[in-house]
Simulated assay, not measured.
Amino acid sequence: MKPVGRDLPRIVVIGGGTGLSVMLRGLKEKALDITAIVTVADDGGSSGVLRDEMQIPPPGDIRNVLTALADTEPVLSQLLQYRFKNGNGLAGHPLGNLILAALSEISGDFVSGVRELSRVLAVRGQVLPAAGIPIVLKAEMQDGSIVIGESKIPKAGGRINRVFIEPEDVAPLPEAIEALRQADAILIGPGSLYTSILPNLQVKDIAKAVIESDALKIFVCNVMTQPGETDEYTVSDHLKAVYDHIGCHLFDYVIVNNGDIPEPVRQKYAEEGAHAVELDEDEVTRYGYQVIADELVLFRTFLRHDAEKLSQHIYQLVESWMNRKG
């Protein structure tokens, strides 16, 4: 188990989705004080049902991050992720989502419920929703049409111009802003660019706090494009999308995969409309970003980041940054 204490480098991770959880499983083994700021824009599946019926932020991404950072027996993690297959009204719900919903009612609000489950799971770090209420994600497409709802945006069949949230003045959690102010490093990604990463940066004052921070800033690029969201995007296209939403070149380093993806795996993803994200290094470095490229993927049922190798690169960058700061 890693040491715990106030002197550990403070790292804030912003995002959502499976990629974030995979990476956090590696980071929690490092000597880091981790805060995860997680999207609350999801409106599909179990999360969408609980969001609508109980008027709470969607619990799915939060559940995945809590499970990733938990210091528990594997069977408990499996229990939280267990998705009911049968039952009228119960089928499709992961148990962890229901527990978070119950704790929200018991403790009085969703944020307190997350804190309670974090304590029960002995979470290594702090997990915070980007806001204490659910937000609605909207996308303006290149043809000028507006698509409403996180789950509908990738299915719209067009190219995304920008995303924005309602209510646009939703307040971030004070703890999230404080964590960003105290951060030694801020890490954004991996995850769905327009529906997991950028919604967090649309929450009032979060982007401002990231911009104003003198922390080391790292972007972890996705391995594959996402159909309906980042079709044909290169690494620099991902960075340009962040720039277009934030208004500045945010990152010091960009971590990307340059490992070969076996042809059968490529074909499997191509059938779904996904392709490997191309590293256009000249374009990336032209804007002042430093590139860390390595073989960072594993394939089991799906392509995932190699959590151990990725977290080692991140830790080395943070350690070097801390040494330079003295």
Rank of each mutant, 00 (worst) to 15 (best):
R304N: 04
A185H: 00
S320Q: 11
I14Q: 00
R304M: 05
V220R: 04
V111F: 08
H245A: 15
L69P: 01
L187R: 07
A209K: 06
E278Y: 08
P9I: 07
R25C: 03
T35S: 14
L128Q: 00
K28A: 02
P199S: 05
L296A: 03
S47C: 03
Y269D: 13
I133R: 15
K138W: 03
V49K: 09
D205E: 12
D7W: 14
L296W: 04
G125E: 01
V120H: 02
G144F: 13
E232F: 13
N97V: 07
N88W: 09
C248I: 13
V297L: 13
P129K: 01
K2C: 04
V120T: 07
Y253D: 13
V235F: 00
I133P: 10
V242R: 05
V136S: 15
T225M: 08
T67V: 14
I34Q: 09
S118N: 10
E178F: 12
V49R: 15
L193P: 05
P58Q: 07
E150A: 00
D294P: 11
Y82G: 09
Q316K: 04
V4C: 12
N86Y: 10
T301W: 09
R324S: 06
K155S: 12
Q202F: 13
E271P: 01
R10Q: 13
L173Y: 07
V210Y: 10
L32F: 04
P3F: 00
I135F: 10
S213W: 08
I246Y: 13
I133Y: 15
G87M: 00
T195L: 07
Q81E: 15
I197T: 01
R25K: 11
T225N: 07
K268P: 01
K208T: 13
L66F: 13
A171R: 12
V38H: 01
E319R: 03
K138L: 09
A31W: 06
Q78E: 15
R10F: 09
G108W: 04
I34M: 10
